[in-house]
Design a protein around this nucleic acid. Structure first.
Lengths: 384, 384
DNA sequence: GCGTAACATGTTACCGGTAACATACATGAT
DNA sequence: ATCATGTATGTTACCGGTAACATGTTACGC
């Protein structure tokens, strides 16, 4: 053991400043480059003695595997491209969780994430798409952009890069996607409210530009229809997936003489806005107003009362996406193995929904409503 | 011209499925690989005729430069690592804008962005840091993590990867950082309120764990002190940089008999919460309450009244970071060229701040305050 | 004692580009 | 005519790994 250390100290070490290569280790240990490779990758046969020598030398020279070299002949980059909007006003939590799922699926692999902004102008240009992602920079692509992705998704598909869209199903059926079953989830939430005896049910819609928001609204309407309930359009608020706008609009809605006894918001952030509004108005939740959301964000369990909501398996969507891409990468993306997957969304019943009161027929105004200086937020709504 | 095309069609093309290489183009055009390289990179001498031949062949074979090959002998990856908290990157204005600045600075270069989660457990392990980023995968690192980065920043510094921290100055003076002058910016906002004649000034603090939040609070306190004004601790709200918590806390604060005539919130999101609270309470802004924020987010100009705020040059911070890294990369990161840069934050005076009313000495309660069913949100605050 | 299999290591070629140097021809100045 | 210079192209080597194949050694069963 001692002579080995001695030898290495005196063998010519890599030039200062230049990182050590396998070649350097080979010279230092007196072994061949190939044995070094085998020792460090624990592949093939290497004697215990040689392995120790190599490890010691690697440590001494602070050797790090150079992926570029490896990748060049394995013809892959170990980079997975993910495309998201950089400043999606919509659901930080949503994107974060999906990417978290992706990251968790990448643990143990040698894949890294290259990030691209879906709103970047570059993606409008097909050639740029290719230049950005196809030149062996990424082995696969995961698109998590709820809007404006059809154009470049198509381009990438033509370039035959393994690609999957997460959330917000694209129109083009030749593209693989993984999404949550928005329709089923929203249906079960609406069903739940109806089961509780509610028939005056309001709805807070998400942006019309988003596919999932439309699916949820559709589900809401169809479920009510299936139970022969009419949707009162006065109780349908057009929201933007944000808390504040939903809050202000709910203030208005809930202070009406004729108001719903339950509200289904198409995401949790807006449900929180409704909850805040109810509190200000003086309506107790769930006694006087049931509220259901969608997503099951952290905050849903951090409010009083805890929010009944539909859980989206966001992390699982991310993991699924990785699995799919990996499969394609492994197969060399040969066959056109498309998937159109809709993961089920689970209704989580908590404290914000309750049996509809038979007695409270919402004939009178809510407690405290007439005392609120109402003109302020009614006239001010436009600016929000 | 015609014979050239003819020739190419009959020359052996790359195998199906395998992307074309320069070798393929060389065979197809009858030129050498080197000439192909020169033609496509417009470097060195290439005759117009040859160039045209090459371009045509490249188009025909749908040739794309393989970066791995190039990178291998240029010993760089063209990847810039950015480290942010995952849930911050997408959706949060602050991170989004900084990354946007970074992206814009990368246009025209052949650099791409590799993203890493600052909250990943991997970064607690020095060896993992190296494995993740140092193995020739990134040429430089930009850290935009407001907390918990000291540990791994130090590790990367030791690995001699060009690195810069954006925002949230680290404690270790041997690390380069680019930040906004939080102290100066917050001071000018406080100064502005004082200039308007306010002396009863409230403050909405950000998370104590964040460096910038502390700087802003410090600036607020020092500025008041410099003007011989006492800070009333009852008017200091501990916020979390979020709208909702600030909203609920403000409701409480503003309905007190003895309340401030101006509030400085340490970010815009919280200023919006204060604005909403004022609206509910029935205080008109800016007549009865001046509100100033920090950041100048989009929403600041989308509310009524438009928010007076301190603008952070987020995109510029991103661009500066790239410039710095590029400089280091070009120099091979040889010398320890540290920068500690504080970009100035600009006070933007809009509509939410006004001269303090001499008459309104806040002796009486605000209009409508006693009419709000107060018990509801006071008791409920804990859950928010 | 010999053949076979498992073990241990080395050699060669190659991944897809590019730097460095070499070659060849044209042009224009001396 | 000669030489320096500019232009156009080719050759070779190399970046840092790994696959594929070759070689040599040891161990074990028959």
């Amino acid at each position: 053991m001692l002579p080995v250390t001695y030898m290495m100290k005196h063998s010519h070490s890599p030039h200062e400043g230049r990182p050590a290569t396998m070649e350097d280790l080979a010279r230092a240990t007196g072994l061949s480059k190939m044995t070094i490779s085998r020792a460090l990758n624990t592949s093939g046969y290497v004697s215990e003695q040689s392995r120790k020598k190599v490890i010691a030398a690697a440590r001494q020279f602070n050797y790090r595997l150079n992926y570029i070299g490896r990748n060049l002949n394995q013809n892959r980059t170990g980079m997975l491209g993910i495309i998201t909007p950089l400043e999606g006003l919509i659901g930080t939590y949503y994107f974060g969780q999906i990417v978290k799922g992706i990251q968790s699926a990448l643990i143990g692999t040698d894949y890294h994430i290259a990030h691209y902004d879906s709103l970047s102008a570059d993606f409008n240009d097909g050639e740029k798409c290719a230049q950005l992602c196809y030149q062996k920079r990424v082995d696969g692509l995961i698109v998590i952009a709820p809007k404006r992705h059809d154009c470049f998704v198509k381009t990438f598909a033509e370039l035959k890069v393994p690609l999957v869209v997460v959330g917000g199903a694209p129109r083009d059926p030749r593209t693989s996607f993984i999404d949550v079953d928005n329709f089923g989830g929203a249906s079960s939430a609406a069903e739940h409210l109806i089961d509780l005896g509610h028939y005056k049910i309001g709805f807070v819609a998400g942006p019309k530009t988003l596919h999932d928001a439309c699916e949820r609204e559709m589900a809401f309407r169809k479920t009510l229809a299936r139970h022969s309930l009419r949707v009162n359009e006065k109780w349908v608020i057009q929201g933007s997936y944000e808390t504040r706008k939903a809050f202000h609009a709910s203030l208005h809605l809930l202070s009406q003489r004729d108001r719903p006894t339950a509200i289904f918001a198409s995401n949790d952030l807006m449900a929180l806005g409704v909850l805040d509004a109810a509190r200000i108005i003086g309506l107790s939740v769930p006694e006087e107003l049931s509220i259901a959301g969608f997503d099951d964000i952290d905050a849903a369990t951090n409010v009083q009362p805890q929010l009944t909501t539909v859980r989206q398996p966001m992390q699982r969507m991310g993991r699924k996406a990785v699995e799919y891409i990996m499969e394609l990468v492994a197969k060399g993306n040969q066959e056109r193995h498309l998937i159109h997957q809709k993961l089920t969304a689970q209704l989580i019943i908590r404290e914000s929904t309750a049996q509809a009161r038979k007695t409270t027929q919402t004939t009178g105004q809510a407690r405290g409503v007439d005392k609120v200086p109402f003109s302020h937020f009614v006239t001010g709504t436009s600016g929000l």
